[in-house]
Design a protein around this nucleic acid. Structure first.
Lengths: 209, 209
DNA sequence: TCAATATTTAATCAATTTGTTAAATTTTTA
DNA sequence: TAAAAATTTAACAAATTGATTAAATATTGA
């Protein structure tokens, strides 16, 4: 987004950009059904009619925001998953890159998961997209490395789930986590920083021979 | 709930029970803002006015459903966390019990996490409840077992997060998971069955000395 | 410049949705 | 049994909310 590049202030953004960023913010915290067009307009500091002028409808605006959000994550996941690196290195790179990214967009995981569950018709739409996360190469690699005796026999899908779960869950369940283990926002992000190393260690310890 | 005890059919449930179960169902799949009072009434097979007759408002109805949902999970988590079992046994019991339970209520984790994020004011309300998940004893136990040389040095909070993440994430992100690793609903539940053993193995392998 | 085009606003519409009410029906109980 | 209480219904009120419109203002290009 242009504003990220040039660090522009709100006043220099185009109205369309202001709407988009406001919508991103509101949709993330309220979800599609919870979000209000008026709140997005207020957040953007413009008249509500502008939302429809630029994006036609709430659905269209949401779609733009959601696909953009998902499009931020998927490519870098794929780049790592489809590289020629050995498995352990891929795990380290994925965890590090995912957590670094999501620390900047802390509500993105929950947003994606939530809308994925509430609007299942949406799922189909971009699972066809070639940018979608595609773990098939990684799954084969896991089998190969088992065959080579590098790692213990293990279900590749379970391992993939482990990796996603360990990295994404704390962000997705952010408020629950903070409440249950009783930590502040700062402590949470400190914990997530540490987690970049922790997760790789845990998983590699568990599967290495 | 009475219907669980006696396995009664819908027609034998009291109206209040019918409403409650219908609300549980609709709130889970649509979330608070997405749920419609009319849809709950239809699902329960009663007149919409009954919802207000028994529960006054959508908020009250939701609160009843949400606290009940959370109340299903928390006590058994606490029972395991606060027992006198050694750590490895606790991990095995927790994972097994949590997954078994959640297989019967597959949308409960996503529901709780979602409403926790969307209605933060709700969080406070039952984090005071003595029934809330309280991991303090478990956290101390982890430190103790590290001191005794049973497990490797590790951050207790990270380990706790690992356990929650590995068990809860696949359910919370159900539709995303199914889409990305490309499996059917049946295959998903098969995978979750296998996961009861897999998770304990992974975690224990990672931390045992 | 000035006409054409794009942007913006305020007011309002139309549909949806939560909530109410008064009357009818059923159930309870004295 | 019959009065009292609880339950249920249909109709409607009130509020919310996504969307439209027509007019005003600003911008652009010939």
């Amino acid at each position: 987004m242009l504003t990220k590049w040039l660090n522009l202030t709100v006043s220099m953004m185009s109205t369309e950009e202001k709407i988009f960023e406001a919508a991103f913010k509101v949709f993330q915290s309220k979800g599609f059904t919870g979000a209000r067009m008026q709140e997005i307009a207020d957040e953007a500091g413009i008249n509500k009619a502008m939302l429809h002028y630029f994006f036609r409808s709430k659905e269209k605006l949401f779609e733009a925001v959601f696909l953009n959000a998902f499009g931020k994550l998927a490519p870098q996941v794929n780049e790592i998953f489809n590289s020629e690196d050995p498995l352990f290195e891929k795990i380290e790179k994925f965890v590090h890159s995912y957590i670094s990214f999501v620390i900047d967009y802390p509500f993105l995981p929950q947003f994606i998961i939530q809308e994925m569950n509430n609007n299942p018709e949406f799922v189909a739409k971009f699972l066809k997209d070639e940018k979608r996360p595609n773990p098939s190469k990684l799954l084969k690699q896991i089998e190969t490395e088992i065959g080579l005796g590098i790692i213990k026999p293990i279900s590749p899908k379970q391992l993939l789930l482990d990796i996603f779960a360990m990295t994404a869950f704390p962000f997705a369940a952010q408020n629950l986590v903070k409440g249950i283990i009783n930590i502040s926002n700062d402590e949470f992000f400190q914990l997530m920083e540490e987690r970049k190393i922790h997760i790789s260690e845990q998983i590699i310890n568990a599967i290495k021979k």
